[in-house]
Simulated assay, not measured.
Amino acid sequence: MPLYLVFTPIGNLEDITLRALRVLQEADLIAAEDTRHTGKLLVHYDIQRPLISLHEHNEAVRIPGLLARLNTGESVVLVSDAGAPAIADPGYQLIRAAIQAGHQPIPIPGPSALLAALVASGLPTDRFLFLGFPPRKAKARTEWLSGLRNEPGVLIFYESPRRLPSLLSDIVQTLGADRRVVIARELTKLHEQFWRGRAEEAVRAFAEPPRGEIVVLVAGARKEAGDQGFSPEVEEVLAGLLAGGMGVSRAARLLAEITGLPRRQLYQRALDLAGSSSSP
């Protein structure tokens, strides 16, 4: 039998798919990060199935027994407390062991805190890097952030409320005070909040630890003028098109057709040039 990987609500119990409810109802066994937490979800939907704990402290010990049950044809479901199993949560070791034993994991898609935060953040969504929880120790955290300084994609972290002020201060020191930051708090819950601003503003806004579950998003590194790798000739032609009154989108498209260069990068460079020319 396959190992089912069921995504569960990240706050609002209505955020669960019909397929997920059916798989949970039909399961022979549900392996949960916290049986008490998952038990509340099952009670809410009147699902009465056997539960067993699987968390970071006992995952290795649980694996042989769960594989044995899969081998006998039983249906085993893996869930975390919220969202996707194995994403900043236990489950990776079991999933890998199941694959090696010939059992195909089947994902049952659903809620995800990191994706919910990203799509509502207002930051670019074409490239992002999810990094789980940052290191707890200050020195390790600053070194870790320093290695991300030139990453162009949006950086996404989970963090505890208690450590959020320290993380934001380290972001200012290592990534820059002007980096755009979004703090998504209590997603899908009654007091859901999105805070948006510059990194140094975030330090002031969250000087006192907030309450609730938190996702931190940081804009990727901005390329400086000319850093896209375009030749001086391309830069000159693009600037000339814009100076002649051509729109940003049309100029980028035309130059992409002529040169074969990526239109998206040309468009971004055109935006930069148009913005700098309109500045006082």
Results as ranks from 00 to 15, higher is better:
274 A>H: 14
79 V>T: 12
211 R>P: 01
154 V>Y: 06
162 R>M: 07
167 L>D: 07
222 R>G: 14
252 A>Q: 01
47 I>E: 09
193 Q>H: 12
115 L>S: 14
204 R>K: 15
93 Q>Y: 12
197 G>T: 06
181 V>H: 01
23 V>Q: 04
48 Q>M: 05
51 L>F: 10
175 L>R: 02
119 V>C: 14
72 T>C: 05
87 I>A: 00
257 E>C: 00
33 E>Y: 03
29 L>H: 04
40 K>H: 13
231 S>Q: 13
180 R>M: 10
156 I>Q: 07
201 E>G: 10
85 P>N: 08
221 A>R: 12
28 D>T: 03
131 L>D: 10
198 R>L: 14
165 P>W: 01
42 L>S: 13
192 E>C: 04
69 R>D: 02
236 E>S: 14
64 P>K: 15
6 V>F: 01
163 R>E: 05
72 T>L: 06
171 I>Y: 03
15 D>N: 11
77 V>G: 03
99 I>T: 09
179 R>M: 12
18 L>M: 14
273 L>Q: 03
117 A>I: 00
91 G>P: 04
44 H>Y: 10
82 A>N: 06
117 A>N: 06
263 R>K: 15
20 A>Y: 02
260 G>Q: 09
143 E>Y: 05
40 K>S: 08
173 Q>L: 14
167 L>W: 02
68 A>E: 15
34 D>P: 12
101 A>Q: 04
183 I>S: 06
102 G>N: 08
137 K>W: 06
156 I>V: 15
26 E>P: 00
258 I>Y: 08
108 I>F: 05
104 Q>G: 04
224 E>H: 09
53 S>K: 03
272 D>V: 13
114 L>V: 15
13 L>I: 07
191 H>V: 01
144 W>T: 09
263 R>P: 00
40 K>M: 10
56 E>P: 10
